[in-house]
Amino acid sequence: MARVVVIGAGYAGVMAANRLAAAGRSDVGVTVVNPRPDFVERVRLHEHAAGATHAVRPLSGLLHRDVRLRVATVETIAERSVRLDDGGALAFDHLLYAVGSTAAHDLPGAENAWHVADLDGAQALRTRLRQLPGGARVVVIGGGLTGIETSAEIAYHYPFLDVELVAPEVAAWLPDASRTRIARKLVDAGIVLRTGRRATAVHPDGVATDAGWLPSACTVWAGALAVPDLARRSGLPVAPDGRLRTDETLVCLGHPRIVGAGDAVAPPRHVAAHLRMSCQAAMPLGAHAADTVLALIRGERPVALSIGMVGQGISLGRRDGFAQATHRDDTPRRFTLSGRAAALVKERVCRFTLSSMRFPRAYRWRSGATPTVPAPTPTTVR
């Protein structure tokens, strides 16, 4: 039997494990290794932090019935096995690397801030928000999707708090009209926009910026994401930011038994330069990684990655939202949707992710860029 070990049970890992198990091959055994017995809906962590929902679901109800779950953390990856933090080890014939991402602490004093990059961070912020008295100031650092959604969610559920958003720009990657509309919606929600300034350090009682000091009873860091250093620690090839380097098919360079998926992998730019760390990219990456593993088991040549993006949905509290349609390369199109309709679209997308993982063989995605070079023929491994 081909032993497949999947490291990580996020969007990419669960999709990959379920797609492998649903292939119906009796000669393939799948084991998922994850630090907790739960699946975390990361797209809802800002909601979780504000108390709007509970972003945790038991993996027992999401993983395919033929997938084994090992609750542990992988400490190192060897040539044919992984060592676990509980003292055990798992041998594999194929490894699927899907360890995801978490908050990057690249701002001085970031340890003084809360975040929503993972469940522990969102839960800590949830607890802190409930402790704040009326009129307390909450400062959110970051004008990207996480900063926008988190500040809007907090303002919606805690109207008695003073919420401020600090960033050089809000939604800087979107067209001017979209940026203006989102900014207006945030202001209408009661959020003070401190744009044109950059946070330089976080302190327990406030935020230092290049335009002066901002007192804060609760600072939320919504900046860049980082990946675990497991691949680097294990001596595997990594990009400068620590992501696992793969070929066009998601096979790890120089390690034909290892396939990557999700936020923590770095495929070649000609097939993945447009893919941002997101659920929208993780799901097809996980499905493609599973197909690559099955091709390797059959001794066939895996196909090159091809993923096209669809759009960007932004929740602005429970009753408002904004959706920006995009081309396959994730550049904006002219079509946008706003208001209650956009909020409903975003909610449907969040629900669709779970249903897709439960029916992995039926999952399809939009094709993307055609590789400019053919995918190499991998070494056959069994």
Rank of each mutant, 00 (worst) to 15 (best):
A103W: 03
D106E: 03
L59F: 00
H48N: 01
V116F: 06
A110Y: 00
G100M: 06
H115M: 04
A78Y: 06
F92C: 10
H105G: 08
H115S: 07
D66A: 14
V74S: 10
A113D: 00
A72N: 11
H94Q: 13
D118E: 07
D86V: 04
A72H: 12
H105I: 03
L95H: 04
P108M: 00
A49N: 00
A72V: 09
Y97G: 04
V99M: 00
E75P: 07
D106M: 01
R68S: 14
A113L: 02
A50V: 02
F92H: 12
S60N: 08
E75S: 13
R70E: 15
A78F: 13
L59Q: 03
G61P: 07
A113T: 06
A89D: 11
A117L: 03
H48E: 08
R70G: 11
H54C: 06
A50Q: 00
V67M: 11
H54K: 12
H64D: 15
S101A: 15
R83A: 15
T102W: 03
L96G: 03
L84W: 06
E111N: 04
V99D: 01
H64C: 02
T76K: 15
F92R: 12
G109V: 01
R83W: 12
A110M: 05
R57E: 15
L69Q: 09
A103V: 15
A52W: 05
S101D: 09
I77Y: 09
W114D: 06
R57K: 13
H54M: 09
F92V: 08
L63Y: 09
G87V: 02
P58A: 01
P58I: 08
P108R: 08
G51I: 04
H105F: 12
A110P: 05
D118K: 10
D66S: 14
P58R: 11
R83C: 09
E75G: 07
R65G: 10
L62I: 10
L84Y: 07
A52Q: 08
V82W: 07
T53Q: 06
P58W: 01
I77K: 12
L69R: 09
V99G: 04
P58N: 03
A89V: 10
V82A: 02
G109I: 08
A55T: 04
L90M: 05
V71N: 11
A72D: 15
V56W: 04
A110G: 03
S81D: 13
E79P: 01
A91F: 12
D86I: 01
D106T: 02
V56L: 00
S60D: 13
